[in-house]
Amino acid sequence: MVETYQRRSALAHLGLVARAASSSTAGAGVIMSEVPHRTIVNVRGTASDVAFSSAVQTATGLALPSAANTVSNGGVWQIVWLGPNEWWITGPDGEAESLIEALRANFAGQHAIACDVSESRAIIALKGAKARDVLMRGVSLDLHPRAFRVGQCAQTGLSRANVLLHLVDDTPTFEIYVLKSFSDYLWQWLEKVAADFNLAVEA
């Protein structure tokens, strides 16, 4: 099979690793980085159906998030709420095929599906004291720490791209999932806004 160095992340053309090497994060208001590859499996099923939820739990060791707009986190896997019958299971790179196999086996006899979408999204991590100041320039959601808490997620618009926002920790660190075709646009846009908040790039 092909050597892994031939693999290119969505934002590889921006040379972020080289930029990060020559950029200091000390005193930065905002730090941006690309999370290059992650397994993302789209799962559909009936939340109220115990057979379905336990099928997911058997495969991931995780319960479906009980509340809308939240993420359940189990170390290896995370389950991201997308809608009333739709979730993402995210985890380490390269695990999509085996996860889907396990899920499909557990789904036997149910109307539930799993579909690999790992390669469709780029992930931009945006963190630092001024991360919210950057995001509020493109997101109409209330991102106040009392309104949007750690572990919450939301699908929404960020400037003119559709994204999934996930507040990972109270640094705060946001992970922004975006279709790869929009990732160059979104990175440039974020970078332009973040320029007013002392931006650093991290590998």
């Binding site: 400037s159 003119r160 279709l179 075709s181 929009f182 646009y185 440039q188 846009w189």
Partner: peptide
């Protein structure tokens, strides 16, 4: 800031 290249997103393919 949504003018010039930001007026409308430019979607790029992996081979762009």
């Amino acid at each position: 800031i949504d003018k010039g290249d930001f007026l409308d997103p430019i979607r790029k393919t992996p081979l762009h």
